[in-house]
Amino acid sequence: MQESEEKRLVEIRNKLKVLLVDHLSLEDVKPEDIKDDEILFGEGLGLDSLDAVEIVVLLQRNFGLEVKDMNKGREIFYSLDTLAKYVAANTEDKSE
């Protein structure tokens, strides 16, 4: 059970990495360059407030998730890992 959960997290992380690179015009960054626990804003990946609202749209389009409260968003968007965990916790595992 735990193993499949971890597998699913890996999949989500990889999908998110591709989405971020494609939709946030991250020049010279390849999906595989992004660490699993990469900090998204400021010192980490260097994202800003406009990227944050773009991620809201990405989550909506790709996972059907709605993040309305940006204060809560701040915790969710802290790192790639927190983002992936949020997606995992709020979407159904289709492989089961």
Binding site: L24, L50, D51, V57
Partner: peptide, 10 residues
């Protein structure tokens, strides 16, 4: 393509 509520802010 995505509807009014699903557009890119960028």
């Amino acid at each position: 393509d995505y509807g009014e509520a699903n557009v890119s802010p960028t």
